[in-house]
Nucleic acid binder design. Structure first.
Length: 810
DNA sequence: GTAGGGTTAG
């Protein structure tokens, strides 16, 4: 007997809430809903078989696992339910007859047909047929064993276990191959390991496949340490002879976590067993090397593969292509595709998806969409993976309309959205601040039985936090923890960071402590957010203290940790501490990135060390650190703050030379510095040239010039620009009108102030008390009583208190 | 054995 089924059921009992649930037959009666006395007796027998009555008074284990067999209400012994003519009985009879003749292949085929037709939950019914019609047949054991095997190979695990438990009660012995089939079927669940241990504890002999199945299962469950340990021990005890598939499984699992060199070390072991690496071994290792960015080594290995007589196939080519994509080297991607075509292989959907991903990552969604048309024109159909890539890119660009179009397309062609596609959409809507829409998507996916996972929940939490809805985020998190038992530190990280961003140190720390109490391990991300929280409220002592505490906990600081602390010291004006941290970081071989350098540049500028700041920028170019808009803006801002217009513009030119497109913030800075230096005309010229070029500008750029024009006595230009601002589609507020009107009043351009005031009324914006007071006082001083009366009437009509007419709030 | 969703810093 390979293993005792009742013991297995006890194992299963411990996993009542495991994910291993069979699809239910909701319309079929369950044990508990049974009403007839005979069915109650049968139910009692079932309970006995299932390992005795549960003393807690709960239903039997299988029933708790969602197993609701049709028996006993529609079929029971001595109940007349079994009729000779039942085709299933006849087929089981045929099986017995064939088994007697040793025609086992045919028996297997018929039993597979029966189990597939009857579906999950049918085991009790079929067992009853075998039990009451064929008990005395000498071919009985073979048929029972093959029935268990049929259920196991059809992934109806609980049915297989049920048959085995029945066999156990009838003192029939199941075969090792049935045991292996069952083990194979459950190998991806944590049941497999205990199943094996139980079998071992009972001194059962393994087949030559058993250990290979266990290793494969452990690898697929990402239990790498256990898999390797098991492999070593089984080898030492000479319990098995590993096959090539086992080596490939181990190497694949290692590669997937980035341990490609460890994976490679399995090759000599393979050779010792007389096994030569096959195309799967090579492509697994090549894939592993590609995902860690070791492209040179990957190419070397692909050459070795070819020398061994194996041509590169699509999968290996795609791995290499994706490797270059991951490094952002799209030119190499194209080269490899050319090479692939030269070798007679046409790009497949995976190749195209990698290409689209690469294009989208470079910000070229339009080209990605065009590529989609090319795929269709080549006769391919897009799958949900390709659509997810496009959806993600469109969401990130905020192209909601295009997203909707693509979703319609997915629906029209009848493609099912999977968990990744739905999560992408949820995340996309969250990033766009459309939480309600994201939650609607969640509802839809649940209704389609695609359940939200960690990614989905994290996106929702992140979206709530970014909107400042921390109460809701906390509520959502606690609901997840209580109801769904989803306890993952990354979910806590998101909310802890949410608190950190608004400077709510107390709640950030409290939530952190709550996570620790739950037994969750903090990560460096948790730590970084807490350090950020203390920095945000200016408590650098606590920030440093937390930093040291986490280091003691062996959490390794990252470039993010150092950058947070450096920025805080920079903001506090503690230049020396900032540089000390920078040196400490470099000393630990942590490589500074663009964000770190921008903090350093900011610090140097604040300290008046502009030459050094420029030097850092050059240094970044030499070290091939990507400079972005913020890097340049930081330096431009530095020069603007000391009114060095010339240098600010030179940095802007340098930015263009390096192919970095200035952001709206760049132009805000440049226009502002021109206005501050009194060069309002230059500022306007710059603005005009930018508008002509179709450059994306912010309201700030317009308003900066308008305010300067008002203050410098250029009221008509200001009014015209105000008009252009409105025509450009910007929304104007009372604040914008007030800032212009106030300045005009200050320099006594009252007629123009009145014009803007009228313009404001025309736009349906009512003056507030402060603006009304400014206007009234100015009119009073100029003795413009006529206008004053009109204004007063307007104010009274608008419901503003009359006292504003005599008081100037300043 | 190949492609998709992701928490932290300027």
């Amino acid at each position: 007997m390979p293993f005792p089924p009742n013991r297995l059921l006890l194992l299963l009992r411990r996993r009542r809430r495991s994910r291993l649930l069979l699809p239910l037959h909701p319309q079929k009666p369950s044990f508990s809903s049974s009403s007839s006395s005979s069915s109650a007796a049968a139910a009692a027998e079932e309970e006995d078989l299932l390992g005795g009555t549960d003393h807690s008074g709960e239903a039997p284990t299988l029933a708790k696992l969602g197993f609701e067999p049709p028996f006993p209400t529609d079929f029971a012994p001595n109940h007349g339910g079994l009729v000779e003519e039942d085709p299933r009985v006849l087929r089981l009879g045929v099986c017995h007859a064939l088994a007697r003749e040793g025609r086992l292949k045919e028996v297997r085929r018929i039993l597979r047909q029966i189990t597939d037709e009857e579906g999950s939950g049918s085991a009790p019914f079929i067992c009853q047929m075998l039990l009451y019609k064929f008990r005395e047949w000498d071919s009985n054991t073979i048929v029972w064993d093959m029935l268990a095997n049929a259920y196991a190979t059809s992934k109806m695990i609980l049915d297989a276990l049920y048959v085995l438990s029945k066999m156990d009660s009838l003192t029939m012995q199941a075969s090792i191959s049935t045991y292996d089939s069952l083990l194979y079927s459950v190998r991806c669940t944590d049941i497999a390991w205990e199943l094996f241990q139980e079998a071992k504890a009972h001194g059962l002999v393994h087949s030559e496949y058993t250990c290979n199945i266990v290793i494969d299962g452990l690898c697929k469950q990402h239990k790498l340490v256990e898999a390797i340990d098991f492999f070593q021990q089984a080898r030492e005890r000479k319990e098995f002879r590993p096959c090539i598939m086992t080596f490939n499984a181990l190497m694949s699992a290692l590669c997937n976590v980035g341990f490609v060199q460890v994976a490679k070390s399995f090759i000599p072991i393979m050779l010792k067993y007389g096994l030569l690496p096959d195309r799967y071994s090579y492509s697994t290792l090549i894939h592993g090397l590609c995902i860690v960015g070791s492209m040179e080594e990957a190419l070397e290995l692909s050459e070795e593969m070819q020398k061994s007589g194996m041509e590169l196939d699509m999968i290996t080519f795609n791995s290499l292509i994706n490797g270059y994509r991951l490094l952002g080297l799209m030119s190499e991607v194209w080269k490899l595709i050319q090479m692939m075509i030269q070798q007679g292989l046409q790009p497949d959907l995976v190749t195209y998806t990698i290409l689209i991903t690469g294009l989208c990552e470079k910000g070229n969604v339009e080209e990605g969409l065009r590529m989609r048309m090319e795929i269709l024109s080549r006769g391919f159909e897009l799958n949900i993976v390709t659509y997810s890539v496009l959806l993600n890119a469109l969401c990130k660009r905020g192209l909601v309309h295009e997203v909707e179009k693509l979703l319609n397309e997915i629906e029209t062609i009848g493609l099912d959205m999977d968990i990744v596609a739905y999560s992408t959409l949820v995340s996309g809507y969250c990033k766009l601040g459309e939480i309600e829409r994201a939650l609607q998507v969640c509802k839809i996916m649940c209704s389609k039985r695609v359940m939200p996972n960690l990614f989905t929940h994290r996106s929702i939490l992140s979206g709530l936090c970014k909107k400042g809805m921390l109460v809701e985020a906390r509520w959502y998190l606690e609901n997840l923890a209580n109801k769904c038992q989803v306890n993952d530190i990354t979910l806590y990280n998101v909310v802890i960071d949410g608190y950190a961003k608004v400077g709510d140190v107390n709640n950030a720390v409290r939530l952190y402590e709550q996570a620790i109490k739950l037994g969750l391990e903090p990560t460096i991300v948790t730590c970084n957010s807490l350090i950020y929280a203390f920095c945000k409220v200016g408590n650098l002592t606590m920030a440093e203290s937390f930093f040291k505490t986490f280091e003691l906990k062996r959490l390794v600081p990252t470039v993010v940790t150092y950058t947070i602390l450096m920025d805080a010291f920079c903001e506090a004006g503690n230049f020396d501490s900032m540089l000390k941290l920078f040196d400490e970081m470099v000393g630990k071989s942590i490589v500074p990135n663009a964000i770190t350098y921008s903090v350093v540049i900011k610090g140097l500028c604040k300290h008046g060390m502009f030459q050094k700041a420029i030097h850092v920028l050059h240094d970044m170019h030499i070290k091939d650190v990507t400079t972005d808009q913020i890097t340049y803006n930081t330096l431009i801002q530095g020069f603007c703050e000391v009114s060095n217009t010339e240098m600010a513009f030179r940095i802007h030119d340098n930015m263009l030379q390096h192919g970095v497109v200035p952001s709206p913030v760049t132009y805000n800075l440049l226009i502002n510095v021109l206005c501050l230096k009194g060069r309002v005309k230059h500022a306007e010229m710059l603005l005009n040239s930018l508008v002509e070029k179709g450059v994306d500008l912010r309201k700030f750029a317009y308003m900066t010039i308008i305010k300067a024009q008002c203050a410098k006595g250029m009221p008509y230009k200001a009014i015209l620009l105000f008009d252009r601002l409105i025509n450009a589609g910007f929304k104007v507020s009372i604040k914008d009108f007030s800032s212009a009107i106030n300045r005009l009043c200050k320099v006594y351009y009252l007629d123009e102030a009145k014009m803007l005031f009228k313009m404001m009324i025309c736009f349906g914006i009512r003056p507030d008390q402060k603006l009304a007071a400014v206007m009234c006082n100015a009119l009073n001083k100029k003795n413009d009583f006529c206008s004053l009366y009109v204004l007063q009437a307007l104010i009274v009509k608008g419901g503003l208190l009359p006292w504003v007419l005599t008081k100037d709030p300043g």
